[in-house]
Write a protein that binds this DNA or RNA. Sequence first.
DNA 1: TGCCCCCTGCAG
DNA 2: CTGCAGGGGGCA
Length: 289
Amino acid sequence: MPELPEVEVIKIFLENKLLNQKIVSLDILNTKSFIGDPKDITNQTIIKFSRIGKQLSIYLSNGKILLVHLKMTGQLILNPLSSKGVPEGRGILMGHPTKINSMPNNSTRIIFKFKKYILYFNDQRKFGWVQIFTPESLKMFQKNLGHDILDDKFTPNYLYSQLQRSSRPVKSVLLDQNFFAGIGNIYANDALFLSKIHPSVSANQITKIQSKIIHKNLIVIMQQSILAGGSTMKDNKYIRPDGSFGNNQFFFRVYQRSGQSCLVCQTKIKRIVVGGRGTFFCPQCQPAL
DNA sequence: TGCCCCCTGCAG
DNA sequence: CTGCAGGGGGCA
């Protein structure tokens, strides 16, 4: 579910609460969601959070690293514990439109217990996972990842040279984490709209000038979304760790807007399928080559 | 490089 | 009932 901005928002939230906190114990409710020996992380203190693309790494005091991939429906929900050691209920909805219940539910797959917090890894579709790595095995695991969109190494020239490597549709290449880390379906669609490029154009047809434009738009879109707290869709699968909603969904340009009018020219936004994924664009602003 | 699959649930 | 969903691995 979450793309780069959503994972970044989660990372910053958890960093503020869980840095220097010790994992006291964990309960694994779905064995496929956790890869590794839980004993390797119990009684270890979190010393650092970092993120590459959509992957969140949690560094522990014994040198091990917990890597979290939320895939489509993963959530990390943090509940403070009361002085009695039980989760402080946030209330269920309570008529509050910007926050939902963040207590465990039937999609909770892992429960991490800290002294003052409980962290729930929820994942309705069970695609996501948490896995234990060593620095070496993590490096191996991530060796093919492209540069993160917010990394200094993600330059216009890098974008251009990566696009040159493939004749697949530019949108599919933007989504390929081995080319660029962090772009998902929402931001690929919106970035191509802002760049006035049809999603089906071959990646290697993109010019240097167009690459510069895509580069700028990707960064702007990611930063805007982070500031807005990420994109919470109708199903609320992405929420912040405190249960609050992001607001970037109100700023989508074309994503999930098929049939509605283009924000620039009023033409009806079209939906097609590219590389098996729903793809949205303005036929007027993004003409096919 | 493109398809099927992993899963669950919701909307039409 | 079918189609669709913020992802991506495995296989021809």
